[in-house]
Design a protein around this nucleic acid. Structure first.
Length: 403
RNA sequence: GCGUCGGUGGCGGAGUGGUCAAUCGCACUAGACUGUAAAUCUGGCGCCUUCGGGCUUCGUAGGUUCGAAUCCUACCCGGCGCACCA
């Protein structure tokens, strides 16, 4: 029946429905995509990756989980690594006079990325391309032709650009080129669907424009909602409010627990694949007066499980309970042996638990340093070391053994 | 190119010759309260200190002055306006 090597694609109605709805902000063109999904043809699903930041955070796992949904149905995932933009270098960055992010650095970052994405997707089934492959070869007349597909006002009216212009911030001409490059990527790989955050909408649509220019059928575009980070603002590497896929289990668990209660359900929906029925049930429980902490514990466990497995998730939960709910020390605490005549400050500085003596003095004055074995507050900034477990502030710990 | 305004701590943004390590807001951080939540309140938030004080910071480099983040000169960077222009 099937010719040799032809991929099998599921056209299961309910899977397609959830594919098109869960964690999806908008699909353009929705009806068209549905039709394509039902045709049984294997689609090429594109995701662009910026190779400058080696860490993936949970916000970016949303499109990855969506890709996983596509992959599970049998479609082809295509990663585009935006090494070209990286290589050109940011002109506003003085340091990068000789351009780049070296090839090696890009490669290194990418390997890290793929490894992380591999926690969600089956990488062996994915296609991976570096966009310098084709962008390098674009000539000026080609670029001109592409640029003509857009008008300046399209760009200027984009909210983030407009805001910067209005407030007198600099906008580099090169920034206008990004959508073209990203759009041309879609042409180069003949993308059927491109995924991205809602903030990417303009760039995603640029792909449609360019594909038309090159006489291809325009890709459908799926945007995923952005998610709030630890401080309630949008999760973003530059805010430092991220939960990273590479965070160790305890860290990850703790970060999830520190999220605002109001985000629990949203996180379940977007960052896990716990079934919608169960999520609905959690929601009801909270409304019925269940302590949100308990539901949040399940969330934290679930998320840690995705990236570290069941065992470590269990361990992290125990650790959390012990360290924070009960005020003890965590399991995997830093342990050092030191000579008996050292000062506690020096030990703690060497371990980089505290960055300066001034900070240390402040912490002491604030009553933030405790020997939790003796349940004793340290009040003298110049104390000599003693054996024991010390807690500095909320989450800094060190175990010291005096020789 | 000409003119003009501006470059201050992680960010935003005061300060325009001394009392400025620099008001304030955000972020961060400690404590109280808790569910390590959130909200709230209180404190801290350049470095060193024998806690008296010392040292290094306000685009860069010089200069004026007893004394500069504040004045002068040059340079670098950004905004705006004008000019140039396909």
């Amino acid at each position: 029946m099937f010719s040799f090597g032809k991929p099998t694609v599921s056209i299961d109605e309910s899977h397609i429905e959830s594919l098109l709805s869960r964690g999806v902000e908008e699909v353009i063109d929705g009806t068209n995509l549905k039709k394509k999904l039902k045709s049984g043809k294997q689609l090429r699903i594109k995701l662009g990756i910026d190779p400058t930041s080696p860490n993936i955070h949970i916000g970016r796992s949303i499109p990855l989980l969506k890709l996983k949904d596509f992959q599970d149905l049998g479609h082809k995932i295509v990663f585009i690594i935006g090494d070209f933009t990286g290589i050109i270098g940011d002109t506003s960055d003085k340091e990068s006079e000789r351009p780049m992010l070296s090839q090696d650095k890009v490669k290194e970052n990418m390997q890290g990325y793929i490894k992380q994405a591999g926690k969600i997707l089956d990488i062996k089934k994915c296609e991976i391309h570096y966009n310098s492959e084709w962008l390098k070869k674009i000539s000026y007349d080609e670029l001109g032709k592409q640029a003509d597909a857009f008008s300046l006002s399209d760009f200027v009216s984009r909210e983030n650009i407009k805001k910067r212009l209005d407030t007198g911030k600099r906008v580099s001409l090169r920034e206008l080129l990004y959508p073209l490059m990203q759009g041309y990527d879609s042409v180069a790989i003949k993308s059927d669907v491109e995924i991205g955050g809602t903030d990417q909408k303009f760039n995603l649509l640029a792909g449609r424009e360019l594909q038309r220019l090159y006489k291809q059928e325009p890709q459908d575009v799926m945007t995923n909602p952005l998610i709030e980070g630890l401080d309630g603002r949008k999760m973003s590497s530059s805010w430092g409010n991220t939960i990273n896929l590479l965070d160790d289990a305890n860290d990850m668990f703790g970060k999830v627990m520190s999220l605002d209660d109001s985000l629990i359900i949203k996180y379940f929906d977007l960052t896990t694949r716990v079934s919608l029925e169960i999520i609905e049930d959690y929601k009801k429980q909270i409304e019925a007066g269940e302590n949100p902490k308990n539901i949040k514990l399940k969330l934290a466990h679930e998320i840690v499980k995705i990236y570290h497995g069941e065992k470590l998730a269990d361990a992290a939960e125990k650790n959390f309970d012990k360290t924070f709910s009960k005020g003890g020390a965590p399991e995997d605490i830093v342990e050092v042996s030191v000579a008996s005549d050292s000062n506690l400050v020096d030990v703690v500085m060497v371990q980089q638990i505290v960055i300066s003596k001034s900070e240390w003095r402040r912490l002491i004055e604030e009553g933030a340093v405790n020997n939790i074995d003796l349940e004793e507050k340290i009040t003298d900034p110049n104390v000599k070391v003693s054996s024991g477990t010390f807690k500095i502030g909320k989450r800094r710990f060190i175990k010291i053994k005096v020789l």
